[in-house]
Write a protein that binds this DNA or RNA. Structure first.
Length: 382
DNA sequence: GAATCGTGGTG
DNA sequence: TCACCAAGATT
């Protein structure tokens, strides 16, 4: 590699400013070797041989990946494509089954919008639009996702700007303007860099670089294909970018949750309102969650009379507040109250229970929300 | 434009 | 441990 030719290239970078095309070219060369292999992707080699990604899988993965880590998404993605291999299958599913499959992944409005989007696309013949403006009109698809699908699924030029790209660009140009305010400037840089050839691989390469090299903390600049172009590397402080405004601290809210158990082990559940926090998901009965410390955290606020016993306390962090729930436990006889239903022991793990609700149930009944393992009978300690 | 909306990984 | 924050969209 240390050839005379390589030396000349280096000299040309030093003698003049690298063009956007240089940067894109370097990034694509790096991507050909160092790209991540992900369940929804085809490799650059497959792409070069004429293979094309499935827009359904790209759309599904992009919605799941909104504000969510790749590692968290992988298992959910595999379950979804197994259950619903194409957009028609997802459109044919019930909203309840979709929410159950999404449970635990968070930001549940995404699942409701996912289902609404699948219904629309299926109605229109099962094909996703191949332009940003067309995609942008669909529920759950905003500026980022419409650009990502356009570039990745259809290999059409689009400025794909996510958190990774914001970080990479803000370091490349040492942008000191705080994020949010700097977004138009960042977008302008990306629009200039998008190549007419392989725009989809360019978008994925930017994100792979941000995820594996240009990481939020301790970036691996020594391995970066753009280190010669990077202003923050020169100044020695890449970790200081992007600049963010301080975020408001989270208030603490408190409340109580009630785990009512029938003689056969069934648990009393109810469905939350369609909109708002944990919208459309299933829960155990709870009090309101308030900032005050008052009677709402005691069994006096129980939804039905019973011999409630204090089982413990859980803490859970949401995006904009912290929650402490006192958990009460009782054995109940009779029918489910209006708006409630009993979930049988073998059904509980499959309910649309958010993580905070599983935590509450686990305090009262350890193991109740765990999926039965095929090995559990033989190896009870697993 | 600011608030709202989950969860798990990570350094 | 705990603060940070991730392939954002919606209202």
């Amino acid at each position: 590699m240390a050839s005379a030719d390589q030396t000349r290239k280096t000299a040309s970078w030093d003698s003049g400013k690298a063009t956007s095309g240089d940067i894109a070219s370097r990034l694509l060369d790096w991507y050909d070797v160092h790209h991540r292999e992900l369940p929804w992707r085809i490799t650059p080699r497959e792409h070069a041989r004429g293979a094309r990604p499935d827009p359904y899988r790209i759309w599904l993965s992009e919605v799941m990946l909104q504000q969510t880590t790749v590692e968290a998404v992988k298992a959910y993605f595999r379950v979804f494509v197994e259950k619903w291999p194409d957009v028609e299958a997802l459109a044919a599913a019930s909203p309840e089954d979709v929410m159950k499959a999404w449970a635990g992944l968070g930001y549940y409005s995404r699942a409701r919008n996912l289902k609404a989007c699948a219904d629309l696309v299926a109605q229109r013949g099962g094909r996703f639009p191949d332009t940003e403006t067309g995609l942008r009109e669909l529920p759950g698809i905003g500026a980022y996702t419409s650009a990502a699908i356009t570039a990745i699924a259809f290999d059409r030029p689009a400025a794909v700007v996510d958190g990774n790209v914001e970080r990479v660009i803000s370091r490349l140009f040492s942008i000191t303007t705080p994020l949010s305010e700097a977004k138009p400037e960042i977008r302008a840089h990306v629009e200039r860099m998008v190549p007419s050839k392989r725009p989809g691989d360019f978008a994925q390469a930017m994100m792979d670089l941000g995820a594996t090299i240009c990481t939020p903390r301790r970036p691996r600049c020594m391995l970066c294909p753009l280190r010669e172009d990077c202003s923050a590397v020169v100044s020695g402080d890449p970790e200081h970018f992007p600049v963010r405004l301080p975020k408001a601290d989270k208030p603490l809210r408190r409340g109580a949750a009630f785990v009512a158990v029938r003689s056969d082990g069934a648990i009393l559940l109810r469905k939350r309102a369609e909109k708002g926090l944990l919208g459309g998901m299933t829960e155990v009965p709870t009090t309101g969650w308030t900032a005050r410390i008052d009677g709402a955290t005691t069994e006096a606020a129980a939804p039905l009379p019973a011999d409630w016993r204090h089982a413990g306390r859980i803490a859970h962090i949401f995006t904009h507040f912290a929650l402490e729930l006192e958990v009460f436990h009782a054995h109940i006889k009779g029918d489910a109250p209006a708006g409630h239903f009993w979930s049988l022991v073998h059904e509980i793990s499959g309910e649309a229970l958010p993580t905070v609700m599983k935590k509450a149930i686990e305090v009262a009944i350890p193991g109740a929300t765990k999926k039965p393992s095929p090995h559990s009978a033989k190896r009870p300690h697993d």
